[in-house]
Simulated scan of single mutants.
Amino acid sequence: MIRAIALATMLGALVASVAVYTITSPGWRNGITPQFGGLDRRGETAIAAEAWPICTTMAAVVSNADWAQLDPDFKAGKKALGAENWNAAVAAFEFAALRDPTSADIQNYIGYAYRRLHQMGPAMSHYQQALMLNPRHRSAHEHLGEAYLVLGEPAKAQQLLAALENLCLIPCEEYDDLKRAIAAYRRLATR
């Protein structure tokens, strides 16, 4: 009798999850590129990346979280980001990604380092990978939005700001940083 109840409960949970999966919006399942666009450069004129502020949330990257102690490559990557040694950060995080290919944080950090190296193709790819791994990753939304500003596509950055507004139920730093970056971009674009 107990087995029958347990089986019925598991079957009910399975049916409910399938129903939620099929009823919810399919946008997140189709990948991030179609939703936010690819590397379409037909947008407005790009402004040099040095001309507008880069996010402030990466300043906290040098702090040592407990889980960062477990992976020496992850720790080395965070240290390299703090020292603004972008090539070393990419190398260290790539090694960390070999051990943990499902980490959206690692993909986001790799994308950030590539963006600071002015290699927008790999940066965009890693940000999108981070969002595929975790569609609610606030830093990846922010950094991808800033990357779109570098490419001169403020409309796509604005889409990511709207997504962040939905993700941040209370005020969050990523939303504020991207909003400031978009405002700075617009000020520079009107000059």
Rank of each mutant, 00 (worst) to 15 (best):
I2M: 14
I2Q: 12
R3S: 13
I5W: 06
L7M: 13
L7C: 15
A8K: 06
A8D: 08
T9K: 05
L11S: 14
G12P: 09
G12C: 15
V15A: 12
V15Y: 02
V15Q: 00
A19G: 04
V20M: 13
I23N: 07
I23W: 06
I23V: 07
T24Y: 05
T24W: 06
T24F: 05
S25Y: 06
S25N: 11
G27W: 07
W28N: 08
R29Y: 09
G31V: 05
I32Y: 01
I32K: 04
T33C: 00
Q35G: 09
G37M: 04
L39N: 12
R41T: 12
E44H: 07
T45M: 12
A46R: 05
A48E: 12
A51P: 00
P53Y: 02
I54Y: 01
T57K: 02
A59Q: 15
A60L: 08
A60Q: 10
V61I: 13
V61N: 02
V62R: 09
V62A: 08
A65T: 15
D66S: 07
A68R: 07
F74I: 01
A76L: 09
A76D: 11
G77H: 03
K79V: 05
L81W: 01
G82K: 08
G82V: 02
W86S: 02
W86C: 06
A88P: 01
A89R: 07
A89Q: 05
V90S: 07
V90P: 00
V90L: 01
A91K: 13
F93A: 05
E94T: 14
E94D: 14
F95V: 11
F95C: 08
A96P: 09
A97R: 10
L98P: 12
R99I: 03
R99E: 14
P101Q: 10
P101G: 11
T102C: 04
S103P: 15
A104Y: 02
A104I: 11
I106G: 01
N108V: 00
G111W: 04
G111F: 04
G111N: 07
G111P: 08
R116H: 15
H118Q: 10
M120H: 15
G121N: 13
P122M: 10
S125T: 15
S125I: 14
S125H: 14
H126R: 15
Q128S: 11
A130D: 06
A130N: 04
L131V: 10
N134S: 14
H137W: 05
S139P: 08
S139C: 06
A140W: 00
A140F: 03
H141R: 14
H143P: 01
H143L: 11
L149M: 11
V150G: 02
L151D: 11
A155M: 08
K156C: 00
K156A: 08
Q158T: 13
Q158R: 14
L160V: 00
L160S: 00
L161W: 02
A162W: 09
A162K: 09
L164W: 06
E165P: 02
E165F: 04
N166A: 12
N166H: 12
L167N: 11
I170K: 09
C172A: 04
Y175W: 14
D176Y: 08
A181F: 00
A181R: 00
A181L: 02
I182N: 05
A184P: 02
Y185M: 03
Y185D: 00
R186E: 15
L188T: 13
L188W: 07
A189L: 04
A189S: 13
A189Y: 01
T190Y: 01
R191L: 15
